[in-house]
Amino acid sequence: KELVLALYDYQEKSPREVTMKKGDILTLLNSTNKDWWKVEVNGRQGAVPAAYVKKL
């Protein structure tokens, strides 16, 4: 499985998103959308802005 690093804090704004903190390591589930990537963090799945994460 592919991992990404959170470059910034992000507070979810809808139920389809997830909150992450700078430095979090997230499991990347889907990166086909260039703006929003689906990730899993702390057992929750949701979208985060692609510009806020970097593939490891």
Score class of each variant (00 low, 15 high):
Glu17Asp: 05
Lys55Gly: 04
Pro49Asn: 03
Ile25His: 04
Thr27Trp: 13
Asn33Val: 05
Ala6Pro: 01
Trp37Pro: 02
Val18Arg: 02
Glu12Phe: 08
Ser14Asn: 13
Pro49Tyr: 05
Pro49Gly: 02
Lys22Gly: 04
Ala50Phe: 03
Lys38Phe: 15
Lys38Asn: 12
Trp37Lys: 00
Leu56Phe: 11
Leu5Val: 15
Met20Cys: 06
Tyr10Ile: 00
Asn33Gly: 12
Lys54Ile: 14
Pro49His: 03
Leu5Pro: 00
Lys13Leu: 09
Leu5Met: 14
Ser31Tyr: 09
Lys22His: 06
Leu5Asp: 01
Leu26His: 01
Tyr52Ala: 11
Glu12Met: 13
Pro49Thr: 02
Val4Ser: 03
Thr32Pro: 04
Asp35Glu: 13
Glu17Phe: 07
Glu12Tyr: 06
Glu40Tyr: 08
Val48Ala: 03
Lys21Glu: 06
Leu26Trp: 03
Val4Lys: 00
Glu40Lys: 06
Glu17Met: 06
Gly43Glu: 06
Val4Leu: 12
Lys55Leu: 14
Lys13Asn: 11
Lys1His: 13
Lys13Ala: 11
Asp9Trp: 05
Leu56Gln: 04
Asn42Arg: 11
Lys22Pro: 03
Val48Trp: 02
Lys1Phe: 13
Tyr52Val: 06
Leu3Glu: 07
Tyr10Phe: 08
Gly23Ile: 02
Tyr10Thr: 01
Leu56Ile: 14
Lys54Gln: 13
Val4His: 02
Tyr52Met: 13
Pro49Ser: 02
Asp9Phe: 05
Glu12Trp: 07
Leu5Cys: 12
Ala47Lys: 13
Gly43Cys: 07
Leu56Asn: 03
Arg16Ile: 11
Asn30Glu: 15
Gln11Asp: 14
Val53Cys: 14
Arg16Cys: 15
Asn42Val: 05
Thr32Arg: 11
Met20Asp: 00
Trp36His: 03
Val39Gln: 00
Lys55Ile: 14
Pro15Arg: 09
Asp35Ser: 11
Val48Pro: 00
Leu5Thr: 07
Leu26Ser: 01
Thr32Asp: 15
Lys55Glu: 06
Ala47Arg: 15
Val4Thr: 01
Lys54Met: 15
Ser14Gln: 07
Lys34Phe: 08
Ser31Val: 08
Asp9Val: 03
Val41Leu: 15
Lys22Asp: 01
Lys55Pro: 10
Gln11Glu: 14
Leu26Ala: 09
Asp24Glu: 11
